[in-house]
């Protein structure tokens, strides 16, 4: 349990990496890192496909990333209708890439592929918690 609180609408509640949501509550965006081979994973995972290990530690996704691509969605699937339009983005933080949304007050005209972007934690009105991106200056 716990993962049902991730994002506008989560589709699953049980995962070994549900602590991700606890870190969001503390204002931290975390990835997992394999204790054995040091590979860093985002999305976080409980198991390492490189060495088959299952010893993971939580490491913070820090600093500024580069905007890989983005799109403004004008039609939404069920459960997201109230949010349109919103901007989905992929951001490269070097060791990991992170998929998410731009903060809703950022217009797509302000965005450019390759621009510096940072991640911030956001709380939604209904107790859900997520992260979102902002242009970094």
């Amino acid at each position: 349990m716990g993962f049902e609180r991730f994002g506008r609408k989560s589709f699953t509640s049980q995962t070994k990496v549900a602590a991700f949501v606890d870190y969001l509550d503390k204002g931290e965006l975390r990835a997992t890192k394999c204790n054995n081979c040091d590979q860093v994973f985002f999305p976080p995972r409980a198991d390492c496909p490189n060495c088959l290990g299952d010893g993971m530690e939580w490491v913070e996704v820090e600093g500024t990333g580069s905007l890989v691509s983005f799109t403004q969605v004008n039609y939404a699937p069920a459960g997201f209708e109230g949010d349109v339009p919103y901007i989905l983005s992929l951001v490269d933080f070097g060791k990991v890439r992170v998929f998410g949304r731009m903060r809703s007050d950022v217009p797509q005209e302000a965005l450019k592929v390759g621009m510096p972007v940072k991640a911030v934690i956001c709380r939604l009105s209904d107790g859900q918690v997520a992260y979102e991106f902002l242009p970094a200056r």
Partner: peptide, 22 residues
């Protein structure tokens, strides 16, 4: 509409409201 949102990674992408055209 409901299924549309589940065509991606349901843990890490769908919670943001994804769909194929995006």
């Amino acid at each position: 509409q409901e299924r549309m949102g589940r065509g991606a990674d349901i843990m890490w992408e769908s919670p943001f409201g994804t769909m194929m055209p995006a």
